[in-house]
């Protein structure tokens, strides 16, 4: 009973994702086509990039609401800086740098200010959204140099460059978390802060790094998205963060910190993507989609809480 529970909690999401995949493959003819699958991957690239680094923040016991704001601000700053001479590389570089700065800000506020991460990043979100309006003057910034799309859409081995960038991010995050001192420290800080401190873990530095990486990923993802859509616009839409946190949690990383894995988030992202794709292909109302997504998240968080209470 207990064992079944533990197993379901550990690998349930994998089975659920596989089942969903099979279900769609059987019921929905338009699903199992190279184009559709490639599209799903391409569309999820941006979410995936942010989600894997948000996973690290969550495991460290933190939470970052400001990722949406960073995602929106980063390309605006980059485009403003370039004005006439637009280049894809500068967009990515400057956008990522903006992300790093925002992440550093979050990290410092959370680590040194000892402020609850959720509240702290909610506050910085507002600041960053505000900056986005100021930088853009409230108008849509367009990319006139159409060649810049290539940064996101070039096909390599049949897969878009955006997808490749996401793959690289996944691999980097995995290595960081599983095979480096930093990764171990992240688990330790999220698992038990005081034990970590007494074991010589530089707790503040770990927290700052985790937020910085997440900020970096949001800046990178925002720039990538701007290159793909050839526009950037200020808004105070928290949408990305919801999708990202949903994916992380559905994958099985605990919001309580101390446990989780990158592969889980990858599965979580695709589970939610498959759900959405299935609904779209079958022409189901987007409102229903949202409700189902909400239920899935509740189920995932509920399973986490339940398994926590089961263990002594």
């Amino acid at each position: 009973m207990n064992k079944v529970g533990a197993y379901a909690r550990n690998y349930g999401i994998v089975w659920a994702a596989l089942l969903l995949f099979l279900l769609l493959a059987i019921t929905t003819p338009a699903f199992l086509t190279v184009d559709n699958l490639r599209n799903i991957m391409d569309q999820q690239a941006v979410t995936l990039i942010v989600a894997v680094f948000a996973t690290i923040v969550l495991i460290s016991g933190g939470f970052d609401v400001s990722l949406s704001a960073v995602y929106i601000l980063a390309p605006l700053v980059a485009l403003r800086m370039m004005e006439s001479n637009q280049s894809g590389w500068i967009l990515m570089l400057v956008g990522t740098a903006v992300g790093v700065l925002c992440g550093l800000l979050n990290g410092f506020v959370v680590a040194k200010g000892r402020i609850n991460a959720f509240i702290a990043t909610l506050a910085t979100s507002l600041i960053i959204f505000g900056l986005a309006y100021l930088v853009s003057g409230g108008s849509i910034l367009r990319i006139t140099n159409v060649d810049m799309r290539a940064i996101a859409t070039t096909k390599i081995l049949g897969i878009t460059s955006a997808t490749w960038i996401a793959v690289v991010c996944v691999v980097v995050a995995m290595i960081l978390l599983e095979r480096t001192r930093f990764g171990r420290y992240v688990f330790a800080v999220g698992g038990n802060r005081e034990s970590a401190r007494l074991a010589g873990v530089p707790v503040d530095r770990v927290v700052i790094w985790a937020f910085t990486l997440a900020g970096l990923s949001a800046g990178l993802a925002g720039s990538l998205n701007a290159a793909r859509t050839l526009t950037a616009q200020a808004s105070d839409d928290f949408g990305l963060v919801f999708t990202v946190i949903a994916a992380v949690v559905v994958g099985g990383t605990s919001i309580a910190g101390g446990s989780g894995a990158i592969w889980r988030t990858v599965v979580g992202v695709f589970f939610i993507a498959l759900l959405g794709n299935g609904f779209n292909l079958n022409g189901i109302d987007p409102i229903v989609q949202r409700i189902v997504q909400g239920l899935v998240i509740l189920a995932a968080v509920g399973a986490d809480a339940w398994s926590r209470s089961q263990r002594e």
Binding site: G191, N192, S195, G200
Partner: peptide, 18 residues
């Protein structure tokens, strides 16, 4: 429990952490 170990990590991680 409160100051020494990271309970939900393997023995090996706990031994090598510092």
């Amino acid at each position: 429990k409160d100051q020494g170990l990271i309970l939900d990590r393997p023995v090996s991680d706990n031994v090598t952490l510092p």
